[in-house]
Simulated scan of single mutants.
Amino acid sequence: MEEKSDCENCKTWEEEMYWKHFNSMHFYQILPKNFNDHLVLPEKFAAHMTTHVPDIVSLIGPSGTMWEVETQKTDNLLLVGDGWKNFVKTYELEENCLLMFKYKRNSRFEVLIFDQESFCEKESCYFVKKCRHTKSEHENHKKRSVREVQALR
């Protein structure tokens, strides 16, 4: 058996150090067609991290809002479920948007979002918040707002 050259040994060592010991790693995704229900993570990331990524991860968008998202491990590693669908809907993601992921070993993905035309960050993503009001609170607020406008007339 032929022994690896020093450079090949260094490369193997570097890759092992990165995937096994670094606390975070980055990758990006350009959103394909049919991304609304699930997102297939990069093959190289999945090959190294499938056993390390839990069944539920957190996605943290540019606004700091956190979404709990299911992962599914098949031949690939997928982000799936209502958490992913809500993330897509809230951030108004579209085909060909670019998402930059920073995976932290504490089961978190920090996500930056870039639009599909300019590949500049989507400014509006920094102002997204999860609404925690109930439907009845919204109705009360709407009624109060109408009364306040009528009182100003």
Results as ranks from 00 to 15, higher is better:
residue 63 S to C: 01
residue 104 K to A: 06
residue 119 F to D: 09
residue 91 Y to T: 00
residue 91 Y to L: 07
residue 23 N to A: 13
residue 117 E to T: 12
residue 56 I to K: 11
residue 94 E to G: 02
residue 121 E to A: 07
residue 42 P to L: 00
residue 68 E to K: 13
residue 13 W to S: 14
residue 49 M to Y: 05
residue 36 N to E: 13
residue 58 S to K: 12
residue 133 H to K: 15
residue 138 H to V: 09
residue 35 F to P: 03
residue 143 K to A: 09
residue 31 L to G: 00
residue 51 T to K: 02
residue 39 L to S: 04
residue 28 Y to A: 14
residue 83 G to F: 00
residue 45 F to G: 00
residue 90 T to P: 00
residue 118 S to T: 11
residue 13 W to P: 09
residue 68 E to G: 00
residue 105 R to N: 13
residue 55 D to E: 13
residue 99 L to P: 01
residue 21 H to N: 02
residue 41 L to K: 05
residue 13 W to M: 15
residue 135 K to A: 14
residue 38 H to A: 11
residue 114 F to H: 08
residue 46 A to F: 01
residue 58 S to T: 11
residue 146 V to F: 12
residue 85 K to L: 00
residue 129 K to V: 04
residue 18 Y to T: 09
residue 146 V to Q: 09
residue 55 D to Y: 08
residue 104 K to H: 07
residue 145 S to E: 02
residue 3 E to F: 13
residue 54 P to E: 04
residue 33 K to H: 09
residue 11 K to Y: 14
residue 129 K to S: 12
residue 10 C to R: 14
residue 57 V to R: 01
residue 78 L to Y: 10
residue 123 E to G: 13
residue 89 K to N: 00
residue 88 V to H: 02
residue 24 S to M: 04
residue 57 V to N: 00
residue 76 N to V: 12
residue 73 K to N: 04
residue 150 Q to L: 12
residue 67 W to N: 01
residue 24 S to C: 11
residue 146 V to L: 13
residue 33 K to A: 14
residue 30 I to Y: 10
residue 30 I to H: 03
residue 12 T to K: 10
residue 88 V to L: 04
residue 74 T to I: 03
residue 69 V to S: 01
residue 124 S to I: 06
residue 29 Q to W: 07
residue 124 S to R: 04
residue 108 R to L: 01
residue 87 F to D: 07
residue 149 V to A: 15
residue 68 E to S: 10
residue 13 W to N: 15
residue 52 H to E: 07
residue 139 E to F: 15
residue 2 E to G: 08
residue 122 K to E: 06
residue 124 S to L: 08
residue 95 E to W: 03
residue 73 K to T: 05
residue 28 Y to E: 11
residue 137 E to R: 03
residue 150 Q to W: 02
residue 41 L to R: 03
residue 120 C to T: 10
residue 125 C to Y: 02
residue 119 F to N: 15
residue 34 N to K: 07
residue 30 I to W: 07
residue 81 G to L: 08
residue 111 V to F: 10
residue 65 T to G: 08
residue 118 S to M: 06
residue 140 N to T: 15
residue 31 L to I: 01
residue 12 T to S: 15
residue 116 Q to F: 12
residue 111 V to T: 06
residue 66 M to A: 13
residue 77 L to F: 05
residue 95 E to I: 04
residue 111 V to H: 01
residue 25 M to I: 14
residue 13 W to V: 15
residue 38 H to V: 09
residue 101 F to R: 03
residue 123 E to K: 06
residue 149 V to M: 12
residue 22 F to C: 03
residue 2 E to Q: 13
residue 35 F to D: 01
residue 51 T to L: 12
